[in-house]
Simulated scan of single mutants.
Amino acid sequence: MADTTYASPAAGLPPQAALHTGRAVFTEAYALIPHGVMRDIVTSYLPHWDQTRAWVIARPLTGFSETFSQYIMEVMPGGGSTRPEPNPQAEGVLFVVDGQASLTVEGKTHLLKPGGYAFLPAGCAWSLANKGSFPVRFHWVRKRYEAVDGIEAPTAFVANEQDEPIIWMPGTNNTWGTTRFVDPTDLRHDMHVNIVTLEPGAVIPFEETHVMEHGLYVLEGKAVYRLNRDWVEVEAGDFMWLRAYCPQACYAGPSRFRYLLYKDVNRHMKLDL
């Protein structure tokens, strides 16, 4: 595998002597999918993707979290897709955690290395190929775009998180911050996929309780995370799936703690259930 500082699934299978003492849990307000259960046996193969498999770690689920899906994709050398997105109303974000992906968007090709980020608006033409010698792994977050009359749709862009600044929260002495790929006031966008960083010992010092749904994939480090009524230990490779209004807070561990964060934003609440 290529060098990377980002976590990705363990794959394979645990030994037959392994104990059933994992941390996986599904509750009325959150799910925790620890890295140790993201194994070969739970992967899926997607239409029009060659030499590719996916861990589906979030999907719209009535009564739980309804706005997005999230996959961890693994594309082997020579694999990829020229017809990746089957839904013309779906926008997407790709975030590479291992290997290198050749991404072509509207006829222009980009090389995405670890930390590479791409926003793909609904209806845009894109394809992806692994032209390297190692597997490439990346997150693919998908959401049905909510168009607004009088506001133009967002356009595609490619970035790398290592080139983007961390915006530190005021009063935290630069210990809790967010790497943002989209201006929060840009109303063209109805979802944000950011990276949150907490330095060793930093905290989210209150129980955030809000309407936004979350997917949190731990890229690095470990922490104790408040999820609804529970304090839960999490570490690199774990995924937390939060429904709206699930209280959350955090105490970071002994090393830098970072996670990829999805949330839905900037739209009126639907009144027709």
Rank of each mutant, 00 (worst) to 15 (best):
W231R: 13
G177F: 00
N228T: 09
I166P: 01
I204K: 03
N228Q: 14
P165D: 07
E208L: 12
D186R: 05
N173K: 15
E220D: 13
I166F: 09
V232L: 06
Q162C: 06
E233N: 12
M191P: 03
I166M: 09
A156K: 05
I195E: 02
H189L: 05
M191R: 09
M212E: 15
M212A: 14
G221N: 03
N194H: 08
Y217I: 06
H192F: 10
H214G: 02
G237C: 07
V203R: 14
F206C: 08
A159T: 05
K222F: 01
F157N: 07
F206S: 13
V211C: 08
L198I: 01
L198G: 02
K222R: 15
E164Y: 03
E164Q: 12
A236Q: 04
R180P: 11
I167R: 11
E208H: 05
A156T: 04
L187Y: 08
F181P: 00
F157T: 08
P170S: 10
L219S: 02
D163C: 03
T209R: 14
H214Y: 12
T185M: 08
D186L: 04
T175A: 11
I195N: 04
E220Q: 14
Y217G: 00
G177Q: 12
Q162W: 10
P205V: 05
L198F: 10
M191E: 03
H192W: 06
I166Y: 10
V182W: 02
D230P: 05
V218G: 00
H210W: 02
T178H: 00
W168N: 07
E161H: 10
E220K: 14
G221Y: 01
V196I: 13
P165S: 05
M169L: 14
T179C: 12
E207N: 12
T178Y: 00
Q162H: 15
R180I: 04
L219D: 01
I167K: 10
P205K: 03
F206V: 08
T175C: 11
E207K: 09
V182G: 00
V193F: 04
E220R: 15
K222V: 01
F181D: 00
I204Y: 09
H214I: 03
E213K: 09
P184S: 03
T172Y: 09
L227P: 00
V211Q: 13
T172I: 13
F181K: 03
V158W: 07
P205M: 06
V203P: 00
Y225Q: 11
I204V: 13
G215I: 12
I166Q: 09
D190S: 10
N160C: 10
T185G: 07
E233V: 07
V218K: 01
N228W: 13
E199Q: 15
V218M: 12
P205H: 06
E161A: 06
N228C: 10
F181A: 11
E233W: 04
L216P: 00
P205G: 13
T179P: 00
P184Q: 03
D163G: 07
F157V: 05
A159I: 02
V218R: 00
A202S: 15
P165E: 06
V158Y: 05
E233I: 02
H214L: 07
L187C: 03
L216D: 00
D230L: 05
D190R: 07
